[in-house]
Design a protein around this nucleic acid. Sequence first.
DNA 1: TCGTGATCATCT
DNA 2: AGATGATCACGA
Length: 240
Amino acid sequence: MTASQMSKEGTRPLATLIPLRRPPPVTLRELVVRAEALEGHSVAQVARALQMPLPAEPARAKGFVGTLLEHALGADPEAADGPDFPQLGVELKSIPLGSCGRPAESTFVCSIRMADAALESWESSRLRRRLARVLFVPIEAARVRPLAARRFGRALLWVPPPADEALLRADWEDLMGAIGAGRAGTLTAREGCALQVRPKASTSSVRRLAPGPDGPQRSLPLGFYLRAKFTARVLAESRG
DNA sequence: TCGTGATCATCT
DNA sequence: AGATGATCACGA
């Protein structure tokens, strides 16, 4: 903020207002009740209640719904490496639905720390901890309706059942094993059943240090994503 | 600059 | 349509 803006009252731009944020939920039940209360409400309604300006262009709105949900549900803004709700051990994920009501996109889980690939175990992995408890909040008709008009669906708290954890573990061990062995450059998004590995960077020219076939090299940063087919099954099973 | 929030743009 | 690789915004 400039000195001239500081000198007068009432001249602070709207964009500098701190958006409202709910206090953190104390219990799991409280969090789920809050999330379920969003059902049927539009992005515009929730954004207005939180005094969050809507992004103008769709391409500039990536991540907006996720941030909106964080504020609406009282996620910890300091949660960097940990879950969104540290006290409850819950990760928050918005799920964009297509016109058929099924997930239209993969879901980002976490970036991949290339240097640690050969050292990390499933039990201690960031991915496993992230997915230990997930609150999925569907958003209807993403990419079909304007951002403001999209409505939230019924939230679902998901704890991976043993069968799903086994799937995730098998994928994780395959994919991380390949990366740890220096084969990250040969991985594509086609590998993995429930998980997939995809680029995670500002542009495709970004390079980070990673293990390679002949020692450390610079390579495109990667992240783990849940396949849309996997989250579709998870959501479908919750209805049944 | 990096990690988290994801969705976009394009190809099949 | 669905999946893949690329991209945009923001906070610490």
